[in-house]
Design a protein around this nucleic acid. Structure first.
Lengths: 231, 231
DNA sequence: CGCGCGTTTGAAATTGTTCAAGACCTGTGG
DNA sequence: CCACAGGTCTTGAACAATTTCAAACGCGCG
């Protein structure tokens, strides 16, 4: 396998304060791999034997219920660590990670977790910070689900994705990975039918523009209003 | 202030592998305090200047929405650490903690967090494990909210509280702290009216027995069935 | 160019909320 | 010791939001 280039990691928070040779050592232990859209990176309940860094693409993290339904918990953007179950003393992955778009992922065997944490303070700090941010995000979803009506939840969810992983286009902010009505339904605890109706309605009002597996937010401000109104 | 007795901590996971003098040192830094039912221990958004251990009683952890509604995220039982925002590199508390029943709490100033983590491996491990368990619990709530109907959510929630902090009585398992219909509604994202109707119905069927601020599960098995049925 | 997945849309059915009113406890103060 | 006040719980009825069921459409990949 060709050597990975050091510039891959130099800008990223977990490695920001490290010297060249340290980054070199870290990279030499890493395996790089490409995942096609829809391919699983790891699955809920399985042995947590690796941890990961997303270099490019997007990853969808979901949990399944006993009855087979799935709930999408969050999305991972490039530059983020994931599959860091060990940070929480877990032996197994608590959720399933699937490539939402074609993705490039670095991975390390979990036995390096301890050494990394001990040797690289910025790696430890960033890991725990990441966990904290995700916990916050999940709590935010939970409170939304508990207090907001469906339209507000969908608006808030679309908005969050546009903010976290949107890219600007001439029409507005476009969610940067393929996403179906059903995906959005799985994030908001509703049905694809309801999501379809909502998006259609918003499109008529010029708030969003959407095509197959694709959503562009053209009027973020009005979407914010929608996500907050409790009438 | 009277010296705290070392036996308070000896049985608890965070301190289980420590020697007598270490526990003595930890206790000498701690402040013990009693909180009446309903009193806040810390509030969301405030400076995270202390971390806590619940010795006796129960603590309700909740978040508020911009519009003033509150969502109860989880309950803390005796022996557990809480307010450990620093484990996640946070500067402020991400939620509000209120005594659900009269409670006895130990607290330490947050400046001791680093030293504790560095000096006592079992404390570090237990802290992160606690975070992991809570994350799991919140994720479970989230998937429940997203996939289950109200009756199933309420059944699952009552069951969870009975399991985590119930005590056996001759009638069945009793939730060990005062809890109103409205509290349960705030946990499940519904209204106190609906909760009241459900509990009344279950009581007629002999599944639970409830009085003011008080719930006893008399037939856990049927409640499990209810919490899972998707008919 | 055709097929399949993703999407749209109506209508009926249903679940849960909202509104409204009253009953019931329990601790407090006279 | 009793009455009262405030918080808690119950229940009916109307209503609204969302799901379910059903059918059809159409874009885009292979």
């Amino acid at each position: 396998m060709a050597k990975l280039d050091e510039s891959l990691l130099t800008g990223l928070p977990p490695f920001s304060q490290l010297e060249r040779p340290q980054i070199r050592a870290i990279l030499d232990e890493a395996i790089s791999r490409r995942y096609d859209e829809g391919k699983a990176i790891f699955r809920e309940g399985f042995d947590a034997d690796h941890f990961f860094l997303l270099l490019d693409g997007f990853v969808r993290v979901s949990r399944a219920t006993e009855t087979g339904e799935q709930v999408i918990v969050l999305h991972i953007s490039p530059g983020q660590l994931f599959g860091i179950a060990r940070a929480l003393q877990r032996e197994t992955y608590p959720a399933t990670a699937i490539a939402a778009a074609e993705s490039i992922v670095l991975s390390w065997p979990m036995r390096l977790w301890g050494p990394f944490i001990d040797s690289y303070p910025s790696f430890a700090a960033e890991s725990y910070k990441t966990v904290g941010l995700r916990l916050g995000e999940i709590q935010a979803s939970l409170t939304e689900m508990a207090t907001k009506a469906v339209e507000q939840r969908v608006a808030a969810t679309v908005l969050r994705m546009a903010n976290q992983s949107g890219r600007k286009t001439e029409d507005g902010i476009e969610i940067a990975f393929p996403i179906t009505r059903e995906n959005i339904a799985d994030m908001t605890g509703t049905t694809l039918h309801t999501v379809s109706r909502l998006l259609s309605g918003w499109q008529k009002q010029g708030i969003v523009k959407s095509t197959r597996k694709h959503v562009v937010v053209t009027d973020p401000h009005r979407l914010v209003v929608l996500s907050q109104s409790n009438s």
